[in-house]
């Protein structure tokens, strides 16, 4: 059974062209999907729908067996706690909390005990090479370190899938390499990944499959995927298989 299943999903903002138009997509467990495309192609919208941060205007979204399109805010929050870890382009760490307090936040919101949360946090920080920064504030860390903190936060609740929105977009090349390797290693361990990125190198390094979005349409025919039913989608678009 696929971990992610989108069927005929459309999403439109205001009166302009749709951000996503009749998209159908499946992702199997353990896959690492890179979603490429120019600005305004609908990449972030796709990610938001999978994360339950937004609801489609049409179609269905099912992740880990949970139908997301009909969930209310409280239910979608509980879904994210259980199944989703999110990594953002600009990290979205809370500046007035320490690294540890940032990382344990999702676990405490989910009701994990303080002791268990801190134990898991320590383990994650250790494995990500951040143990000595546990009491530091994010402002003192480099971009790469902050993104690794964000990864640790995303992994706290052992999510079914990791969603990353331009994870290397705000990093220098060295830090970017660092994060690329990290994500690749996570996927190698079996973590399902969906990456939204402009970074072709990241896609090449981490993704088992690449999708391209153009004006809200999925282009090409990735393995196991069905393109959106428009004339434009008939064009052959390259895909990268790992």
């Amino acid at each position: 059974m696929p971990v992610i299943e989108l069927n005929g999903v459309s999403r439109r903002y205001d009166e302009g062209p749709p951000a996503l138009d009749d998209v159908t997509l499946t992702v199997a467990a353990g896959e690492a999907i890179a979603v490429l495309g120019p600005s305004g192609s609908g990449k972030s919208t796709l990610l938001n729908l999978i994360a339950g941060l937004d609801r489609p205007d049409a179609g269905t979204v099912t992740v880990a067996g949970v139908r997301l399109d009909g969930l209310g805010e409280a239910a979608s929050a509980r879904y994210r706690r259980a199944h989703v870890g999110m990594i953002f382009q600009f990290f979205n760490l809370l500046d007035d909390l320490t690294v540890t307090d940032n990382v344990v936040l999702p676990a405490l919101l989910a009701g994990m005990s303080r002791a268990d949360a801190h134990r898991r946090c320590a383990s994650l920080l250790e494995s990500l090479g951040l143990a000595r920064h546990a009491k530091a504030y994010p402002g003192r860390l480099s971009g790469g370190q902050r993104q690794r903190v964000a990864v640790a936060r995303a992994l706290m609740n052992r999510p079914t899938l990791l969603l990353a929105d331009e994870p290397t977009g705000a990093l220098d090349s060295a830090s970017g390499d660092d994060v690329r390797k990290l994500l690749a290693d996570l996927n190698a361990e079996g973590q399902t990944l969906v990456l939204v990125t402009h970074d072709e190198t990241l896609a090449a390094r981490c993704a088992t499959r690449t999708l391209r979005l153009v004006d809200g349409h999925v282009m090409g025919t990735p393995t196991g995927a069905v393109a959106s039913k428009t004339p434009a989608s008939e064009a052959v678009v390259s895909e990268v298989d790992r």
């Binding site: 994360a51 941060l53 805010e73 409280a74 929050a77 509980r78 994210r80 706690r81 259980a82 999110m86 953002f88 979205n92 809370l94 936040l105 999702p106 919101l109 989910a110 936060r153 609740n157």
Partner: peptide, 14 residues
Amino acid sequence: ELGVHKAMGMTPRQ
């Protein structure tokens, strides 16, 4: 910041 909290799984009641 509220958006980040909600993305982490904060419910409306929280």
